[in-house]
Lab assay of single mutants.
Amino acid sequence: TTYKLIANGKTLKGETTTEAVDAETAERVFKEYAKKNGVDGEWTYDDATKTFTVTE
Rank of each mutant, 00 (worst) to 15 (best):
T1C: 13
T1A: 12
T1W: 13
T1V: 11
T2I: 14
Y3M: 01
Y3D: 01
K4F: 14
K4L: 08
K4W: 13
K4E: 02
L5W: 05
L5Y: 03
L5S: 01
I6P: 01
A7Q: 07
A7C: 15
A7N: 05
N8Y: 15
G9H: 08
G9I: 10
T11F: 14
T11L: 12
T11P: 05
L12K: 05
L12T: 07
L12E: 05
L12V: 08
K13V: 11
G14I: 15
E15C: 15
T16K: 09
T16C: 15
T16Q: 09
T16D: 04
T16V: 15
T17F: 14
T17R: 08
T17M: 10
T18L: 14
T18G: 03
T18K: 04
T18N: 03
E19Y: 15
E19A: 07
E19G: 05
E19C: 14
E19N: 13
A20V: 04
A20W: 02
A20N: 03
V21Q: 12
V21I: 13
V21N: 12
D22S: 08
D22F: 03
A23E: 07
A23R: 14
A23L: 10
E24L: 12
E24F: 11
E24T: 10
E24D: 10
E24V: 11
T25I: 07
T25L: 05
T25E: 14
A26T: 01
A26K: 00
A26N: 00
A26R: 00
E27D: 04
E27S: 08
E27Q: 10
E27G: 08
E27A: 12
E27T: 04
E27Y: 15
R28E: 06
R28V: 08
R28N: 07
V29M: 10
F30E: 00
F30T: 00
K31G: 03
E32Y: 06
E32N: 08
Y33D: 02
Y33G: 02
Y33K: 02
Y33H: 04
Y33N: 02
A34C: 14
K35I: 11
K35L: 13
K35P: 01
K35R: 14
K35S: 10
K36P: 02
K36S: 11
K36I: 11
K36V: 12
K36M: 12
K36Y: 09
N37A: 11
N37F: 14
N37S: 07
G38I: 04
V39Q: 05
V39G: 03
V39R: 02
V39Y: 10
V39D: 02
V39A: 04
V39M: 12
D40N: 13
G41S: 02
G41Q: 02
G41L: 03
E42F: 14
E42R: 10
E42W: 12
E42Y: 13
E42D: 12
E42N: 10
E42T: 14
W43I: 03
T44A: 10
Y45L: 02
Y45V: 01
Y45F: 07
Y45N: 00
D46C: 08
D46T: 05
D47E: 14
D47S: 12
D47P: 14
A48H: 10
A48F: 11
A48Y: 09
A48R: 11
T49E: 05
K50Q: 09
T51S: 04
T51G: 02
F52Y: 05
V54D: 00
V54G: 00
T55L: 07
T55E: 06
T55C: 07
E56W: 11
